[in-house]
Design a protein around this nucleic acid. Sequence first.
RNA 1: CGGGAUGUGGCGCAGUUUGGUAGCGCACCUGGUUUGGGACCAGGGGGCCGCAGGUUCGAAUCCUGUCAUCCCGACCA
Length: 565
Amino acid sequence: MRYSQLFIPTLREVPAEAEIESHKLMIRAGLIRKFASGIYNFLPLGYRVFRKIENIIREEMDRQGGQELHMSALIPAEVLRESGRWDVFGPEMFKLTDRSSREFCLGPTHEESFTVSVRNEVRSYKNLPQILYQIQTKFRDEIRPRFGVMRCREFIMKDAYSFDRDEAGLDVSYRKMHDAYCSIFDRCGLDYTVVQADSGAMGGSGSEEFMVKSNVGEAAIAYCDDCGYAANDEKAQCVEPSGPAVSKQAGMFEKVHTPGIGSIDDLCGFFDCGAEKFAKTLIYLADGKAVAAVIRGDRDLNETKLQNLLGCVVLEMADPESIRKSTGAEVGFAGPVGLGIRKIMDLEVRHMVNFITGANETDYHLKNVNPADCGNVEYADIRNIASGDGCPVCGSPVKMDRGIEVGHIFKLGTKYSDALGCTYLDENGKERPMVMGSYGIGVARTMAAIIEQNNDSGGIIWPVGVAPYQVIIIPVNTTNEEQVALSEELYSKLIDAGIDVLLDDRKERAGVKFNDADLIGIPVRITVGKRAAEGVVEYKMRRDAKSTDMESGAALDRIRTDLGL
RNA sequence: CGGGAUGUGGCGCAGUUUGGUAGCGCACCUGGUUUGGGACCAGGGGGCCGCAGGUUCGAAUCCUGUCAUCCCGACCA
């Protein structure tokens, strides 16, 4: 394509709305424009990259036996009512009604659509397994869209669903999707990690996330360099401190007057000690019922773990009134001793000796408390893992990092097939629920993640496989006939060779063209300049600092090598 | 939803404290000179200062309300 005819609105200055590098560059390079909060339009250059990524996804999904189809974005309420999710999704779902008041939503996800389709058509074990997928727009009214296309309200996802006869079949399908995802993200040039994840509200027996390491990632991951263990922080298991729990005698504690001092920070000052000397007691409402969660003062509670343990639908921090009712004290003075509600205590607390807790009496704390004082408690892993904690597999200290979740694969089991009656008849004529898996990739988020990992001060550095154009030809001086002629010759040869090539025929100064070429990140740049009359051009890879002079024919050969053709 | 900030040509910003003809840089158009890392000279076009009320002789500026956007948090297959 000829640059002079294209719609590539690059920007010199960084729009004020963008915070992270990928977002800034996507706007500056003319890939996207914001249309409303959390809603973006893709411009031609951005859409070319988008389609490259989509096609990589298609190829790898198809290679594993996936079949592409397309489900309606508009979903009738009844299928979500049938699975019970119409109300579960709540305000995150865009709901609407048609002219005769029938209810619909703009699909936030498509488990129901796929499950209903398969249920209506597939009856026999002979037709299983199936892996179906689509690349489709999802709508979620995110509470806080951010970072451009990283988290937005309308986004395109590749979502796949597998249907198998049994768990063993699911394992096979799941493995195929896992492998497909590895190939996809490899081809996108991403440095990623596969981590264990909580399957959350999706239900099911296991899930893994594909995380692109990045300090702007929204997810925290714990990993172990020694054994390779890696998990999302929601999932990462905390091991109980080794050795037997200390069984200090009960009743050694004493009450201390701590007027108005309820926060851990203030208490550290008052008692002149570190936060690890405290056992903090957090009051939660699990489906409306008060529960106490006790963890060491310097730790963070892991609500996912607590919720999984309690098996409740809604878990929220208790309001001050509920706290008063269940502890008999104001907020900040709760403690496990003598507390009359269900108490979940973190494994670590079992090993603490002579710690400080609230006294369940306003303005009082207890010191020298020991587990034996706490009465009936349940011990469980309910805290967040922290850097330096023991790896649950090998015991080495784990490290923490941040990651962008670009893909997530789930073993759903029969949650949806049970709810929606998606069954088949086995060899014995017996009706069984299909065993399902679901597999998602955020396409635009993947694009943003690629940019996060591949940029410099000049702009984007596209990996060859996803670049909007693979080669850009820059005639330095468009009034020089020899330069123009050689540029045109190379241009048509590259087109004939089936290479995506951009000819920067704009009547701009060389500096402008170089800077735009760097900004939009084209992998190979051919500069046709002073030595055009000798048939010599400059060859430069975007990722390299220096260029090399070579005869134009040699440049064509070199392109084939560098693009892996 | 809580906390913070910002809305002034396409983009980035100044002007608001102390009311008095709406500015700068970039981009854009015309002409000329230039032509290897975002050229220069000259001329030019484009803004109900987010919106609605109010105060005032007079409001970008003061007051009230409202909307939007961004950041932090809560939230989130």
